[in-house]
Amino acid sequence: MRLLFFSCLIVGVIWIVRARLLSCDHLGTILYEDLGCKPVFEPGNSCPTQYSCTPFKTYKETCLFRGKRYNINEKVDDSLIMENCFYDCKCVDPVGYDKYKCGIKNCTEWSMSYNSTLCYKQYVPEQCCAVGTICMHQGKQIYECEFEGRRYKEGEIFVPSNSCSKCSCRKGFRGIVEEPFCKRSLCATQVVDYEELGNHCAPLYLPLPGQTALCCPNDWVCHSENDTIVSLSPNVNKKTNLACNFGPKMVNLGEGVVKNISYFGMDMKVTCECVLPPLMTCKAP
């Protein structure tokens, strides 16, 4: 009985932390979830003030993925990376950075044509490719969900506004962002951007107009010798001693850099600030 009580208590605590993090996506918390970091809360703050992460550096003959170390040729469980369209990811010789070699999914719907007016593909949040096809002319009753004023057919994917979760319409959905209907959209950062993490670069976020959630980074901004650290949020409590890594530098909370970068051939001015350590946060003004 006591074991059951503590098991329920642990599950309850996990769900409370998850619920708190859902409302903190504007800070870029999903990246830290993806990296396997642990949130650190301060009294009076509903969102984390920093994250505790396993150092983003290479250890001899191992690779890091979401807080776990993998030996050379050891594979990451496909269920952890399937939503990102990767499979069979294994740690390969890390020379300077943790590195993975992966297969990339080639979903049949990407190359096959079908009548989209009569049929549609069904998806679940934890998979990259469609899990089925439904055709309206087959006479099957199609289940529908309503969320945020819109209706979705069974198997359709939708993203709640200002959130880093994605959901799939399925029987039993109650209009609430909860499992198993919804899942946090993780980024597989340590598979894709291992070099940037190793160099303590900063994630660059370019959310769509009207969206506040900072989900998977659009790119990374790395430190350069001519970067000048300036105060960007002077009202931030400097007594916290919180700081972010940016290349070889440690940048205090509320401080950062303003710099010009090239983003897919476009000149762009970005502001990188220490908001949620240990990584900086970059956004376009």
Rank of each mutant, 00 (worst) to 15 (best):
L253S: 00
V236F: 04
A202F: 04
M112N: 06
K121S: 14
Y205F: 15
F173E: 07
G265Y: 14
C63P: 03
W220S: 06
A19P: 05
I176S: 00
P125M: 06
P180K: 01
G36A: 12
I261D: 14
C216I: 11
G96H: 04
I229D: 11
M266N: 15
V230H: 02
V275F: 05
E109M: 02
T62G: 01
N45R: 00
S46F: 14
E178G: 00
N45Y: 09
C8E: 05
V92A: 09
I81M: 06
F173Y: 05
F181L: 03
N106K: 15
V95G: 00
G155V: 11
R150A: 12
S233R: 09
R170Y: 08
R18C: 06
M268P: 07
P248V: 11
T29V: 15
M266L: 14
V92T: 14
C128G: 07
T108E: 07
L4G: 00
C135Q: 06
M112D: 05
G254P: 02
E195I: 11
L118N: 15
P39V: 03
S113E: 14
G139I: 08
N245L: 15
Y120N: 13
D98C: 07
A213W: 04
M250L: 13
Y32S: 06
L206E: 03
C167F: 01
Y194A: 15
F56M: 12
Y97F: 15
S165E: 08
C8I: 03
E61A: 10
P285A: 09
F6P: 00
M112H: 02
G256T: 06
V92N: 03
G254D: 10
G210C: 07
F41R: 04
A130H: 03
T108Q: 01
C37K: 05
L232Y: 11
R184F: 10
T117E: 06
L197S: 08
F181W: 00
L3P: 02
C53E: 05
P278K: 04
M266Q: 15
M1V: 13
Q190G: 10
V275P: 00
L186D: 08
Y100D: 04
N199D: 11
D34H: 06
Q122F: 01
C272D: 06
C107E: 10
E42K: 14
F65T: 03
S52T: 09
K140F: 09
Y143K: 11
T62Y: 02
K269Y: 12
C169D: 09
T29G: 11
S79E: 13
V95F: 09
R170C: 00
M266W: 07
C222F: 10
L31W: 12
Y32R: 03
W15Y: 13
P207Q: 05
Q190I: 12
G175A: 02
V124G: 01
I72A: 02
P207G: 09
A130V: 07
D193F: 15
C282P: 01
A188V: 04
K283T: 15
G139Q: 03
Y152D: 06
A213R: 00
Y32G: 07
H223L: 08
Y87L: 12
L208Q: 00
L242K: 08
M280R: 11
H26I: 05
S168E: 02
V191H: 01
S165K: 02
N226F: 14
E74T: 06
G132L: 11
T271A: 13
F158Y: 10
T29S: 13
V236P: 05
R151F: 06
E255Y: 09
S185A: 13
